[in-house]
Amino acid sequence: DVAHLFVPSDDIVCRVVYNIIKKNSPSVKLSLYDDANGTYVGSFYRKLSRLGGVFYWLFLDVNYRKKVRSIYCYNPQLIDGLDQNVETKKIAFHDEVKVLMKSALNDQVDKYLGKKVVFLDQGIRDNNSLNQCLRLLEKYFSKDEVLVKLHPRIAGNINYNFDTIRDEIPFEIASSSLDFTNAIAITCYSGACVMSILMFGDSSAKAVFLQRVCANDLKASKLVAFIKRVQNYYGQDKIFSPSSIDEFEMFLKENKRIEGVKELSSR
């Protein structure tokens, strides 16, 4: 018997799991938990195409989203397009969890120390704008000042000229265990950068999103709107979204003398 099911989205796997559980536990409650950008940009309540809508209606329970009555997240004020009947609950981050996270990071700590830039790879292929951004990174930072965190499940076709790491440890765990105040986290779309800000605030890295440079689709426009909400809430100095490659280069030039990742000071 299951009393309460927590899911990150309304994708097929979540729907199938919920429907199977509901057969044996008809009164099961359904809640959404914070899953980075998707929680805040309205993708959970996304509008489906006509064909997609028919498919969901026939096979995946069209009322699934209506069954979600609560969302647990780090900053409910940043959610857009929320059903007024859905309750939001703020997740409190406790120091005990940080201890657990640091134990998970374990021997990977040294790979982050001293790095000025952490680039979160997402397996993006054949993107000329992204390649130009990476060449600019090489221009302003040396090989040992940048760490590329390769995507744990997706392999792209980019051969990075920096130190790389591939593991299944989320970037948020590194953010909880080390001081990223004087470091930069760069990505195209990855929610890990902004989640670190939502979860850890001052000790998190300055986040740089390249989606305005590397993509122009609807998903990117929703992400841009979300980033603006984050900027308004946490301040312009915590998150940066360049509108051009030249603007990105100016940012790198201004920040090339940052100190890099350090150990958290003991309290």
Score class of each variant (00 low, 15 high):
L198W: 04
I154S: 05
K238Q: 04
E172K: 11
P242Y: 05
P170S: 15
C73N: 12
N127Q: 12
N75M: 10
F6I: 07
I165K: 03
R125M: 14
P76Q: 12
S129P: 02
T88D: 05
D202R: 07
E96N: 10
S9W: 09
L252D: 09
D95Y: 01
K90Y: 07
A205K: 10
F171P: 01
N19E: 13
D167H: 15
L130C: 11
F226L: 12
F180Y: 11
R166V: 09
D10R: 09
L264E: 05
A183Q: 03
N157G: 06
K262I: 00
V13F: 13
S103V: 05
P76Y: 08
D95E: 14
V54M: 14
L78H: 08
L218V: 07
Y234F: 15
K116G: 04
K256T: 08
L150G: 02
F93V: 14
Q236T: 07
Y189K: 08
D10M: 04
N85I: 04
K222C: 08
I169A: 03
S129L: 12
L113Q: 03
V16P: 00
L134S: 06
D126S: 13
L48R: 14
S70A: 12
G114D: 07
S103M: 13
M250D: 13
A92I: 12
S70V: 13
I154Q: 06
G156L: 06
L150N: 04
V118L: 09
E249W: 05
L30P: 01
N24G: 00
N128V: 15
V41P: 00
S31A: 12
S176D: 08
L223E: 03
D179C: 03
V109D: 02
D34S: 06
F6R: 11
L32Q: 07
V86H: 05
Y33L: 02
V68T: 07
K238A: 03
E259G: 11
V68K: 03
E96W: 08
D107T: 13
F209Q: 05
D121M: 05
A207T: 11
R166S: 10
